[in-house]
Amino acid sequence: MTANAGSIGRSSGAKPSLKGKASRGSILADRAATVVLWGTGALVLLILGSIILHFAMAAWGVVSLSFILDNPSQTTLGGIMPVLWNSIYMLALTMLIAVPVGLLGGIYMAEYAGDNIVTGAIRFAEESISSVPSIVVGLFGLILFVDDFHWGFTALAGALALTFFNLPLMTRLSEQALRAVPQDERSASLALGATKWQTIRHVVVPLAIPGLITGVILTAGRVFGEAAVLLFTAGIGTPPHYNFMNLDITNPTSPWSPFRPATTLSVYIYKLNSEGLGAFKNQIVDGSAAILISMVLIFNLGARFVGRVLSRKLTAS
């Protein structure tokens, strides 16, 4: 068979040197592409670096302890304490609902879900909520809680809308964390005669904790900065001076009550920008944005750090 194949020619004779310029064009293109790709990576860092630098400079002289701890003021720079409080309060309230539901949902998806229509529907729902714009989720909260339930603009309505919006993320991150636990661990537990639920509770979930905590922190970061969901659910009004000694959570004037409007830091930035006219508007927004960015950094680094420490602890013991 080779006889009929080899009749075309022969490339011997002068062999090109290995250092030859035979493929200069493609090598130049390769070099250029490499430079461009490095450039895109550098651009990402450049943008992020300038954003952080920008806010560090803008917040200089604005952010101080009194900026964080004071009430807003008409005549001076004042502070952002009430809206910062509301952000933290809303975060806690949302996570209180979203973490258990998301974790349990993640357990179902990772451990129980079979390949059937119901699982398909859950996945479709998960993807759908993830892609519905946050403003639409906020509007849904507006009809359901504010109008139909007659709650008005309340922290609880906002927290529930935020839960709706973040449930898919929380569920997916939990599912991923649980799926990352090796199958051998499950088999070992089941082989010892443990039931499926005992295995999940005592083997799978503890081993998945680093991943679960990372998931919680990442979700928390997103909840903290979200504004569009809250515009029409938790309200956009200027918060009153809170009396933290009022612990009656059924009383709408108590800062601890879920049945009161709660303008958060992100919503406050939006509100100041769209209607604020005060002399200190720009400083206040710069300072608030700087605090939001710092929180994002803290949440991100925190998630990394906690995840790393916990997984080291778990694997070492």
Binding site: T2, A3, A5, G6, S7, I8, G9, R10, S11, S12, A22, S23, R24, G25, S26, L28
Partner: peptide, 18 residues
Amino acid sequence: MPITAVYPEPVLRRVEVT
């Protein structure tokens, strides 16, 4: 700029069945 190398005739080493 030349795009790529000059590629000689489509060539394969000749096989002499020995």
